[in-house]
Each structure stands twice: as C-alpha cells, then as structure tokens.
C-alpha cells in the first residue's frame, strides 16, 4: 500500500473511532493546511458528510484571506461552524502588540480562553467531550510527546508525564466525567506528507502558502502581528513539495514564523499544558 494511502486509511479509522466513542464531538479548524487536510479526511471517513461541528477560534487578527476562504468552504461543503472569540479581552484591550499584554498572554486569552469557552458549549448545552485537532508529531517538540487519543482534565490541562499507553489501534475512549479527550488523526503525518496529499487530492488551500511574486510565502498560518513569511519562491503545491524534498528547509523549524513558539523556552509547551492546541 502506498505510504499516503496508509496514512489516509489510519486517519480515517481514527476519525471513525472518535465519532463512535464520543457523544459530543467537534473538530478544531484553524484554516491552515493541516486541519484542512483533516477536514478533507473527515469528508472521506463519513462519505461526504461532516457529522460534527467545526470550531474555529477567531482572534480577529487572522489574515483576512483566511476568513474568506473559511466562509467559502463552509458554504460549499455544507459545514456546521462554531466561531470562538474572546470579546471581553478584545474590548479590554488585552492584546499584543496593539494592547497591553505580552505575546504569550495574548495567545492564552484570544486562543486558549476563547477555545475553552467554545468547548464548554453554548448556554444550556453539554460541553464537548471529544475534540479532534490536527497536530503532527514532527511539527515541534512538545507535540511529538502526544498520543492519538490524549485525555485532558476538566481544566483542559495536559499531564505530559502520565499518559495512557496506546497500542494496536486501541485508544483511550473511556474517560471520567468532567474530563475530555483530544483526538489527533494526523499525528503520524509529516509536513511533506501533508503537501503531497494536498497535491494528490486537489484540496483547496489559502494562497498565502504560495509565493505571490515577492519571493516570500507563509509556511504556517496564524495571526498577522505574530506570523512572518519565509523566503521561498514556491508558487504551487508541486514547488513546495520539491522545496521540502530537497531539504532546503530542513534546518528551519516549520513554525519558525510563529513568534509564540520562541518567546520563552518551551513557550508552546507551556501554552499546550494549559490547553492550547
């Protein structure tokens, strides 16, 4: 079986396990390439349907093209979308760099807190018990310690050192009341796999990933104040695959354009213990 088919089949299996195991299930959709591949896999797993809502945490600082792309797919693919925004923090000016907090705090308020609120469900609704997220083990150190089904406490805390074993496609689908489980169908994919799969399947992506003529492109998408493009002349999927295959970028972390990863040593791990994706 082809490598990409193997990855695809495994991810579909995981998505279906998640759907069978959790009463209240949602999928985090960042609009980026990974979670859009995951969305595509969900449509394959459920034969053209996406039988759970997508949750997009909108900091209101996203690059406008991302929002236009998001709304177009919602319309065309018949998706249910929940948008989580921390209006209180925005109103109070607790933002970075425009407001009065530092970068990591801004991330925590506009992303982690907004997400926690969205995951708690609307008024009178049950909280989500299963949350599908498109992280990959090769992205960044703390993510390589993840499990496919990763339990979180009620406060969304992640106990890195006491994780359940996973073997033989048997995952943690049983959980104590008040806790929830993060499901990671893309854990075994690499950045190159993602691009090869996007190319093979013809999955629509935001044009920000491609060089528009100024010799720069985004490798990872986020909020515009804290995300910078990389030097690259890759203008389409095939050129990105070529670029990744030559190892030209191998010395540069994929998320190097994402400032929150660097602010303190282990910045992302700190955020992640706290519930960040």
């Amino acid at each position: 079986m082809h490598h990409l088919d193997q990855l695809e089949n495994r991810s579909i299996h995981i998505l279906r396990e998640a759907y069978s195991s959790f009463r209240k299930l949602g999928m985090l959709w960042s609009i980026g390439k990974d979670s859009t591949v995951m969305l595509w896999l969900a449509r394959k797993a459920f034969f053209g349907h996406v039988p759970f809502p997508l949750i997009h945490v909108d900091t209101t600082f996203k690059i406008p093209e991302m929002i236009a792309y998001r709304d177009r797919l919602v319309r065309e693919w018949g998706l249910r979308l929940i948008v989580g925004t921390n209006h209180a923090a925005l109103a109070a000016g607790d933002t970075f760099p425009s407001g009065k907090v530092d970068r990591i705090t801004c991330c925590r308020l506009l992303k982690t807190e907004a997400m926690k609120t969205a995951l708690a469900g609307g008024p009178g609704e049950e909280p989500f018990t299963g949350i599908i997220a498109g992280i990959r083990a090769d992205e960044e150190g703390s993510r390589s310690k993840e499990r496919t089904f990763s339990p979180r406490t009620r406060e969304s805390d992640w106990d890195v050192d006491d994780q359940p074993p996973e073997f033989w496609n048997q995952y943690k689908t049983d959980f104590a009341p008040g806790t929830h489980v993060r499901i990671h169908p893309l854990l075994d994919w690499t950045e190159l796999d993602i691009w090869e799969y996007i190319g093979r399947e013809g999955i629509p992506t935001v044009s920000l990933y491609y060089d528009q003529g100024d010799g720069r492109r985004y490798r990872s998408l986020g909020c515009h104040p804290c995300t910078t493009p990389i030097e690259s002349t890759a203008k389409n999927v095939q050129e990105i695959i070529a670029e990744l295959s030559t190892g030209k970028l191998s010395g540069i972390a994929e998320r190097s354009g994402r400032a929150q990863d660097k602010d303190d040593a282990g910045g992302l791990e700190t955020l992640r213990r706290d519930g960040y994706m």
Partner: peptide, 20 residues
C-alpha cells in the same frame, strides 16, 4: 464493524457499514 452510518443530509439515503 466500526459503525453503521445513515447521514440524511442532502437526501442521502445510503445506509453504510463502515470499518477497516
């Protein structure tokens, strides 16, 4: 058998047995 799906959106009438 992982599940049996009957998603009715868009007039889908299939009853699909899913599994690996």
């Amino acid at each position: 058998v992982q599940d049996v799906y009957k998603f009715t959106a868009n007039g889908d009438t299939r009853r699909i047995v899913a599994g690996t």
